[in-house]
Design a binder for these strands. Structure first.
Length: 261
DNA sequence: ATGGTAGAGATTCTA
């Protein structure tokens, strides 16, 4: 089963980019971030026509996440637990039943800039809530995938030019430490299973500005975290880097895993 | 040191 994460940066503005990739890559399950629309504005029809069930958690203008699946989605939950006053649509979770049941979480972690400030405080508080919930997910002993745009550059080798990110919320020590604290519960970063050495990259995001793509001035901020039970099922993984060179691209590219599930 | 781009929706914010 092929399961992907893709920050689409506006699903209505980029519906042809999305359907083109879905047709080519043929993922079974996709978590989307930054749909930037409300549930009723989501372009369901062209995606349903490709055989996907659709569950959305949107809001007006910003943020918004969704899960697409060729298999039925069960027990869908919306919003990250831990703060009933949080109105930002950044988290969705569902069970996908193939010949094995998987729990899939799609998340859009707060950017946190500028830092320091209230947005950075919100990012760190959100990461603490994710940490608490991630522990509960591991305790289920199901195969779990916790994937999405983490807005965290884990290490210097995850940036083409780490020096320019030193004062950015994506690379601050507090953000990186919070990400590590989640990993240390026992999650496995899929990409690093196959690329564990010290070489630079691969990247998943290139800014639209200043020719970042042309200079390969990228960062790796879209991550797939696997529970041990999910990691045991891993067959293959990839980053669809070529999507960034196509017409009307998102600034992020898809990251996917293939599991024996 | 600055500005460079993009989407949504309102004349600015978020990234």
């Amino acid at each position: 089963m092929k399961i992907a994460t893709f920050n689409i940066n506006g699903v209505r503005a980029r519906i042809e980019t999305l359907t083109g990739w879905l047709s080519e890559a043929e993922p079974d399950v996709v978590v989307l971030q930054e749909i930037k629309c409300q549930d009723e504005g989501f372009p369901r029809e062209p995606i349903a026509d490709l055989g996907y069930n659709i569950e959305t958690h949107g809001q007006k203008g910003f943020n918004g996440v969704a899960i697409l699946s060729k298999l039925p989605l069960e027990d869908v939950t919306r919003g990250l637990p831990g703060d009933d006053t949080d109105e930002q649509a950044r988290y969705i979770e569902a069970t996908v039943v193939g010949h094995r049941a998987l729990r899939v979480a799609g998340l859009y972690l707060p950017n946190g800039n500028p830092q320091p400030g209230p947005k950075f405080d919100y990012k760190l508080a959100w990461m603490q809530r994710l940490h608490d919930h991630a522990r509960q997910l591991l305790a289920t002993e199901m195969p779990v995938l916790m994937m999405g745009d983490y807005n965290v550059i884990p290490e210097a080798r995850d940036a083409a030019r780490p020096e320019k990110w030193l004062d950015d919320a994506l690379f601050r020590p507090e953000s990186r430490a919070a990400f590590r604290r989640i990993l240390h519960q026992g999650w496995i970063e899929a990409v690093r299973l196959r690329d564990a050495d010290g070489s630079r990259g691969p990247f998943t995001f290139w800014d639209y500005q200043a020719g970042a793509w042309q200079r390969d001035d990228g960062i790796r901020i879209d991550h797939v975290l696997l529970s041990p039970q999910a990691a045991d099922l891993l067959i293959d993984l990839g980053i669809d880097r070529d999507e960034r060179a196509k017409d009307k691209p998102s600034d992020h590219v898809p990251v996917w895993v293939d599991l024996d599930a």
